[in-house]
Design a protein around this nucleic acid. Sequence first.
DNA 1: AGATCGACCTGCCCGC
DNA 2: TGCGGGCAGGTCGATC
Length: 308
Amino acid sequence: MPELPEVETVRAGLEAHVVGRRIAAATVGSTRAARRSLGGAAHLEQVLPDAVVTAAVRRGKFVWLTLAGEPSRGPAEPAESAGALLFHLGMSGQLLVRQDPGEAPPRHLAARLTFTDDGVLDFVDQRTFGYLALDALVPTADGGPGGDAGAGSAGAVLPVQVAHIARDLLDPTLDVPALVRRVKLRRTTIKRALLDQTLASGVGNIYADEALWRARVHPERPIAAMAPVTIRRVLDQAADVMRQALVQGGTSFDALYVNVNGASGYFDRSLAVYGQEGRDCPRCGSRIVRLAFANRSSHLCPRCQRAP
DNA sequence: AGATCGACCTGCCCGC
DNA sequence: TGCGGGCAGGTCGATC
């Protein structure tokens, strides 16, 4: 499920239910899930206990917990300088907060944090493209490489592994005209640019297809053939559709449960083209088609979105 | 430097 | 019923 709106729903759930709690123990059962954490699973298990979660932060599809009081840093380091516990949900990752963990661990449990109050945070990941990693927080010049954003732009403090990810389309400090100029320089097609997380982050295959349909632009359209105003329209539509999805995803986490299953609320009702092959275009009634695209798919209305 | 391709996984659904 | 192929919300590293 996880594109920006889903990850933001998870982040909000972590903020509500995990921030302020102290980790008592960490169990990382999957070495693969820890593959991007220096020192691997054993180091995570050793270092996380006693850390207090101070914030839940997101950029694009990455979310991290900032930690204070991480003991292995040693007494010389001020507590505030402790690192971040970074998560990427990959294709199938879930973060689930439970007050009562129950007996049987969930299928595909990759890691579990137990808090001092006995509640747990489970990282569950069926396809194992996701991961968790302890990472250092570093100041960056601005969002992403080439992030020229110009004089006076405030930098961000990011985990090292997120430093190359650009500001996302719902970031209030995103400089959209500068982004349009950077996109315009790319010698590729519009959908590839939309999915390039070093230009702007957060957009995945679903929202790319939905944004292009809303903007009436074919996914294979070369950037070179697009007017800046059209690029701008696509980006605005991407931000809009993600904002609308977020509103619907936000309703679904209640109780002590960080919902990673926002699919139920949003999908069936609001998607115009993604997964709608063979259905009617909600705008013109033409048949929605699916095209092969980079080992995956694009969904579009051939009438609203004319082939280049 | 920028763009593209394959690799990394499990599970489900479809057709034979 | 079983099995093979295709497909699924993503990213990274190696290549061109």
